[in-house]
């Protein structure tokens, strides 16, 4: 039911399904606000965010700490509901779902990659990759074959029986990416995926993301590092809870110029 791993970049039949939507974008945020109750006055972490991301895009989200970047990531990753506004993911309104339904969306549609890998220390690479399939309700045999396929696609199949402590940082992040890919989600959501890696490993991981993007995966990269962001096709800058610039780039290899000319957020 989820999009296959190597799907075509356009024309996913699912994006047109569901209730009537004006946009067939994979991600469609409209007027998203997020308020946190803090002290007497609430803190507005996001205010009026409009954003559309198409299937197959490679987007970097940049911003200083406290800019609302993490909050945006939580909303995009269905880890948190927005206070107001609507969020359509693949045509489905996910902004008012219950915890249980959100868990299902996270399981099927989103693959998370974290800065600190977040692998279970006591489980092997294989078991770590199988974990999302456990929650998806897959049988043992299906889990094994799909986990091995995912490990192979990121080049660490030979490490499948190793525990995270026996792996290098780069290998750990590859296992984590395999885990994100194993349910064949509609998008990968990576939060500072190279933050804990040396530059060589970071380069490998970024190359892997580029490769996955080239295979048709939608990749959202949250980072504060301009060099990392420069690998993306499109860079969003966020500040004080608003998207202040949205740049599209033709070639991903070039360096990103500073966000001197903020564009209107696409809607």
């Amino acid at each position: 039911m989820s999009a296959p791993l190597n799907t075509a970049r356009r024309g996913d039949p699912e994006s047109g399904r569901g209730p009537a939507v004006s946009s067939d974008a994979l991600i469609d945020l409209r007027g998203i606000d997020k308020l946190y109750a803090m002290g007497e006055r609430g803190v507005k972490a996001l205010s009026g965010v409009d954003l559309a991301i198409e299937l197959g895009e490679f987007v970097a989200i940049m911003g200083p700490s406290g800019s609302g970047k993490s909050t945006l990531m939580n909303v995009l990753g269905c880890l948190d509901n927005p206070s107001s506004g609507t969020y359509r993911l693949a045509g489905r309104d996910v902004s008012r779902l219950s915890e249980r339904e959100l868990a299902r969306v996270r399981n099927r549609e989103i693959g998370f990659v974290f800065q600190s890998f977040n692998l279970l220390a006591r489980a092997t690479a294989q078991e770590n990759v199988e974990l999302p399939l456990v929650y998806a309700g897959a049988g043992a045999r299906e889990r094994r074959t799909r986990a091995q396929a995912a490990l192979e696609s990121v080049g660490v199949l030979d490490r499948s029986q190793h525990r995270p402590s026996e792996l290098s940082g780069g290998q750990r992040q590859r296992v984590a990416i395999a885990r994100a890919l194993v349910t064949k989600p509609k998008m990968l959501l990576a939060d500072e995926p190279t933050g804990n890696l040396d530059s060589a490993s970071a380069e490998e991981i970024l190359a892997l993301f580029e490769k996955l993007h080239a295979q048709g995966n939608t990749v959202l990269l949250v980072t504060h590092d301009p060099e990392v962001a420069a690998r993306a096709e499109r860079i969003l800058h966020i500040k004080d809870g608003r998207i202040v610039s949205d740049e599209r780039r033709a070639a991903p290899a070039e360096r990103a110029p500073p966000p001197s000319s903020p564009l209107e957020p696409e809607s």
């Binding site: 990753g77 880890l79 915890e99 249980r100 868990a103 299902r104 996270r106 399981n107 099927r108 998370f112 974290f114 977040n118 279970l120 974990l131 999302p132 929650y135 998806a136 885990r179 349910t183």
Partner: peptide, 16 residues
């Protein structure tokens, strides 16, 4: 706590 957060991110419902 962090592990539980991770499990939730990977699709564990509160029930599980």
């Amino acid at each position: 706590t962090r592990e539980i957060g991770l499990r939730k991110a990977l699709g564990a419902a509160p029930g599980s």
